[in-house]
Write a protein that binds this DNA or RNA. Sequence first.
DNA 1: TGAAACATACCTTTTGGTCGGTATGTTGTG
DNA 2: CACAACATACCGACCAAAAGGTATGTTTCA
Lengths: 187, 187
Amino acid sequence: MKTASQRKKDPELVRRTLLDCAMRLALEHGPAGITVQAVAEASGVTKGGLFHHFPSKQALVEGLFADLVEKLDADIDAAIAEDPWPRGSFTRAYVRATFDDLPQGQGNPAAALYVSALAEPTVLRMWADWFTTRLARHRATDDAPILEIVRMAADGAWLAHLMREDGAAVPDAAGLRERLIAMTLTD
Amino acid sequence: MKTASQRKKDPELVRRTLLDCAMRLALEHGPAGITVQAVAEASGVTKGGLFHHFPSKQALVEGLFADLVEKLDADIDAAIAEDPWPRGSFTRAYVRATFDDLPQGQGNPAAALYVSALAEPTVLRMWADWFTTRLARHRATDDAPILEIVRMAADGAWLAHLMREDGAAVPDAAGLRERLIAMTLTD
DNA sequence: TGAAACATACCTTTTGGTCGGTATGTTGTG
DNA sequence: CACAACATACCGACCAAAAGGTATGTTTCA
């Protein structure tokens, strides 16, 4: 059986390319930058090709969102698994997942998450649902008000990162990260 | 001289109505909801009328942003004036301005600020400029890392508020507010 | 009366989306 | 193994609607 990369047509790769380009466009030009034309063109595919993979633009945005959430989920779970201290483990993982993606040159999944969510009201509700679900799961270890503040500060961090049009990282992001993590341990 | 409210035609009021409706639409349907057609219609004015007040859509969004920033500036300055303690006074004012607008039924200026900024890249830069300017002005009193964290947490607060499609307030927003303000004083 | 404050009508481009066709695979059958 | 039969992946042209914007009226106030 040939691997996907050896075949001439590789729909899985095209799909991923479409999602990647959609994310790039969202980060570069805001939510309005996600147009089927632009995404298809950037992916080297025609509009018809795009609509073969995603039945509508909303499905595309939802697919992008699902993709990013999946990655975020994996990152968080991995970070929790490595954390020996139960209390605040989810909050620390959330902070780590947010900041680790931050300085990467062109791709900031956490920021793209919000940008895509703001593009479609449907996705905004999906985002809210993910949050409440995940919070409920870790209520036993991450219910303290201080931890909530830390998580909100992490959100504010990539928001600040969004405002820098040049890819310049937030000054002393690493120090900020450590400080936030430390706040989850002094409880 | 008649006051504005007594005259039949009141361009100043129309202008404000346009900006208010633009904000409402941005909060309800995201950045994409702010179209000249929708804004004009919601304001009881035709497109031509809107283009009389704002030469372009970008000018409208920039006007909305300027309006919100002006209000935010006033709120912050007022809060600082009432604050007897210099250290962290700006951060406390920022927290207060953010949270006081939060539970209001339909208008959340802080959230609208970001939503409008995301609509046009130009406005995003204006937003960043305002932030750096304001930060530079209060560097003497609000430069501590803890204060930065508090401000970022405030940003995260209205972000959480954005996700609740129903106007329901964030649970225990008041408690959160007090806790954040307390954090600026334990330095 | 003349300038400001609007309305009406129209234009261009872009938007998301459809539809028929074609090339490329995959699968079943002798 | 070969070859039909089918399914998948994609292209290209077209479409109706909505987008932002303009040009020319008509009304209202000072």
